[in-house]
Nucleic acid binder design. Structure first.
Lengths: 210, 210, 210, 210
DNA sequence: CATGAATGAGAGTTCATTCAT
DNA sequence: TATGAATGAACTCTCATTCAT
């Protein structure tokens, strides 16, 4: 039993080390890609940024493309993990929930601007499987927002001719904070951007059906 | 003078040839990039696609990056050339003009889906100057749409709290037809997409000020 | 027709150039492998030896392994091309033909000692297909020798319990001139080695059946 | 004295452990090389095969090349250790001794086919010293066979124009069981191969001088 | 004694670009 | 104007070896 414990402790230590190395490398990767883009990032540059040797990278990732995929999946995880809690925290009102959710969405985008941009720019680089996985996650990622709008419509607080499209528009406009940051940063903070977009959308969503 | 004429005719012929070669190469480039992306496109592959030799490409373009820039500028030119006429053709009603303009915008995007995607994906590849030029053009490209909304507001047919943002959202959602084509093609044609997005936006633009 | 001729001339010129480049590279490859072995030979070293750039090698060969295969096939071709003529030149007597054939066999081995050694050393490196092709050729290569022994037996000049094995032994002992050159060069020239081995074998082949 | 004894016991234990570790590693090495060849064998693959860590290998061998040399010397030791006893076991008749010796030679080759192939394939990889050592051993290895033929000639049971060459041919044809195994395994077992080759050679060795 | 994470030099290969024809 | 053979720097990835634990 003592041995079992020791073993599982060892395993846990190793698992932790593996995880933190991956984190370190992913962070470095995103940092380099932010400067140079995925294709311009050489493995040597990544190694330098992460302060490790080139060879070590290959102990934690299968290759360059694997790193890109991991970086992208990473931020999709952030959406999945953070959206629901943020919305639950503001109570039951669908409009409030929607606002909270979209705000957090933009915040996550803001914290991962470069990785979001990668999703758009380098997806053709990925395997078909990797691409499919991303597409799927991108859709489910917006589920909490979709649910809030659905609840609003059910409750009569919201009206919308095409709720599906409206949700997807929100997602895309959220991404746009990363993609067109060069344009918006002069005008808005991330929170202001989220609010401005939401105000615009809420007018549409709340309008009486034509 | 006879000689002058001869010369200018020769020049015209040459200019035409240069222009059509550039066209041929740009079309080929977009075709290859559509399949492989910019970085994966080798100059040999481009030459094969265009049915010319590698060396010839360098007579018409400064290098690989130059081709990317030209391809991107090309589609921005299409917006500039086609938006205004399409809007003028439908008369004076601002809403009609807006609808006509956005429809054509999406049509142009649809005809150049790959090039539009390039604008997002590979912009980091470009020189700072190239990038600036694109950003600038992207903004002016939307001017006719902006003008239509302005006219609508002036005429009282449209109301909008943040017209600037609304215009830019239209532009981005237009681009999205290219960027998220994998998702929308199952639901819409390009024209349907344009209409659906515009309907959603018009609700917002037309709503009474809160 | 003039154009056709021009074209075929161009093609012929190109074919010649391609062929001589391949020769040049194969010779260089064999030279480097002789010093370092296949695996130790870097493409850079090969390029240096052949006085070309690394990149050029890949225009003429698919890769490193392809060079190895080509080098090996090359010498098998030499056997195929040279054995029969050398045997025909000495007339009809089976024993004379056998001697002439084996002598030439050893001469070809001698001229390609390094390539022969490669056949033994690096065959595991090759693709299964490449390996199969070599095995097959190695057997057919000895056909003229086999035929001579067969003729001798038919004519009653030779006797042999196991002609097939005897032929294959000759082939292997021929290869041995390359493989154990370090040992035999102190004792024999290539021609002396061929004669000595043949004398030994002829005793066996000529002996009355037990 | 007690301490001395203890020490020497300890030493013996250590020596035994060292020896068995080396055995374990050499066996694993031969097994991996059989599948992949020497150069393709990574130290990690060897460690996996031997069920030890990479680091441990370097406690018992100086490096990768050292393992190759050890594996080759190992089989040469087997010849040295097994040939003489096998020949002594069949009595005094030179022909019988020769047959017994060659049979055992082929048996040892058969048991170490891969290591024998290594001797031919990877010798260029070794240091000059290592190579010299192997050449030397390879010659002395055949001494018992040479002695048997000598005895046969002295006794008048055997006749041979070039006994030295005949012995060396036997050695090489023995090796060939490993090198051309792909060809012979369809026809012979190891014992049958040994007998067939010996029958052929004995005709030559026994023939009356010309 | 034993481990395996970490190193970093060096490998094979690709490809944008040039230039003699 | 058009070609494509030739270049060589830069790339991703591997792996023998070391060393702190």
């Amino acid at each position: 039993m003592a041995q079992d414990e020791a073993l599982s402790t060892e395993d846990a230590v190793r698992a932790f080390r593996v995880h933190s190395r991956r984190r370190q490398l992913l962070d470095a990767a995103v940092a380099v890609m932010q400067r140079t883009g995925f294709h311009q990032m050489s493995m040597q540059a990544l190694a330098d940024e992460a302060q490790v040797s080139v060879g070590l990278i290959y102990k934690y990732f299968g290759g360059k493309e694997d790193i890109l995929l991991a970086a992208i999946l990473d931020i999709l995880d952030a959406f999945r993990d953070q959206l629901q809690p943020a919305m639950d925290a503001v109570g039951d009102d669908p409009v409030e929930r929607l606002r909270a959710g979209f705000r957090r969405y933009v915040e996550v985008v803001d914290a991962n601007r470069d990785a979001v941009a990668l999703t758009y720019g380098e997806s053709r680089t990925l395997t078909v499987e990797g691409r499919e996985r991303i597409k799927e996650l991108e859709v489910t990622t917006a589920d909490p927002l979709r649910a809030a709008i659905g609840a609003g419509i059910a409750a009569g607080t919201l009206t919308c001719a095409d709720a599906d499209l409206a949700v997807y528009d929100l997602v895309m406009l959220g991404h746009m904070w990363a993609l067109k940051h060069w344009r918006f940063r002069e005008r808005y903070t991330a929170a202001q951007y989220a609010d401005a977009q939401l105000d615009l959308s809420l007018v549409a969503l709340s309008a009486p059906p034509r």
